[in-house]
């Protein structure tokens, strides 16, 4: 024991601050949050020192989970919200990846104005996201928005983009895709530039067509960075809150799991903390399952992680 401490003393001392912070601010609250999912905690029975009120919530077992999974609309219509979340996540990540890869491939060629294109294309990443979301809300406005002005000019119908229909989901997805492509593009460009040029030359010598070179050299060369990007993209998009919240607020047509959790936590009279926590726990378990499967699948393909 003594030699053990003597050997690792410095390491533990240096790791201590983060361990304390993560323990107190992340793991402890996590445990508490998971416990709350088995109680009926809400704004009326939470401990509030300012009002000199003690906590009076009670243990209710799996009640919250049963309600969320079976009660439908009054508890956020879990299954259809989950389906919408999956559409939102897969649509956004797929578009991010494909557009990002396409632009990275274009930018990876030597040509004139390359630096300028790069600077312009990463602008959506540079602007604080809540600013861009307001800009898009302005563009998508049904009466004075430029999008509808352009459609009108072309003689096309001018729908209400951010209203009570599935068009709202499409709109927030467009906004989020616009926001996320630059990051994918820049990262994939870095990946492309790390593929050795000799591989392309060798493929060309063997008479490979452009498509074959893309499929057999570029894609395998990008596999490692791609698998990380897709994993991160799915986690981020699944949990992405601000785009939907700032664009359409509590519109049920753009409701995904995290925005509903926030609605339950924060909306007016019904601050149901237990249901909000239950949604949080369900989101976390879904993501953990996804990450486990994903890592197993990528590892089978010979990936390091």
């Amino acid at each position: 024991m003594r030699t053990f401490l003597a050997r690792h003393w410095y390491a533990y001392a240096m790791a201590l601050p983060v361990v304390v912070v993560v323990g107190v601010l992340v793991l402890l609250p996590l445990a508490q949050g998971l416990y709350f999912t088995f109680t009926d905690i809400n704004e009326a029975n939470i401990a509030n020192p300012a009002l000199e009120r003690r906590a009076s919530y009670e243990f209710v077992g799996l009640d919250n989970y049963v309600k969320v999974l079976t009660r439908g609309e009054s508890y956020g219509a879990f299954w259809s919200t989950l389906a919408r979340t999956l559409i939102w996540t897969s649509g956004c990540v797929l578009a991010h990846y494909c557009l990002g890869l396409g632009l990275a491939l274009l930018l990876n060629r030597p040509m004139r104005f390359r630096g300028l294109y790069r600077v312009l294309l990463i602008l959506p990443w540079a602007v604080p996201p809540f600013i861009s979301v307001f800009a898009w809300r302005y563009l998508f406005n049904s009466q004075f928005g430029v999008v509808n002005q352009a459609l009108d000019g072309l003689g096309l119908p001018t729908p209400v983009w951010l209203g009570q229909s599935d068009l709202a989901l499409l709109s927030v997805m467009v906004i989020n895709i616009w926001l996320g492509v630059p990051f994918m593009m820049v990262t994939l460009l870095g990946g492309l530039q790390s593929i050795p040029g000799e591989l392309y030359e060798a493929a060309e010598m063997d008479g490979a067509t452009a498509w074959q070179r893309f499929r057999d050299v570029t894609l395998p060369g990008l596999r490692s960075v791609s698998s990380t990007l897709v994993l991160l993209g799915v986690i981020w998009t699944f949990n992405l809150f601000h785009v939907i919240f700032l664009t359409t607020g509590q519109n049920p047509h753009t409701r995904i799991l995290v925005t509903y959790a926030f609605e339950r936590f924060f909306s007016g009279g019904t601050r149901d903390y237990a249901v909000a926590s239950t949604y949080g726990a369900l989101i976390l378990s879904l993501l953990l399952v996804f990450v486990t499967i994903y890592r197993r699948a990528t590892r089978r393909q010979g990936e390091v992680w």
Partner: peptide, 29 residues
Amino acid sequence: GLMLTFLVTQMFPFAVLIVPLHNILLALG
């Protein structure tokens, strides 16, 4: 284990922490 914890916290939805954190802030004033 430490590294894994850092990675896992990256995927925490804020929804799972928002109530306990609210609780802590309330208690601390």
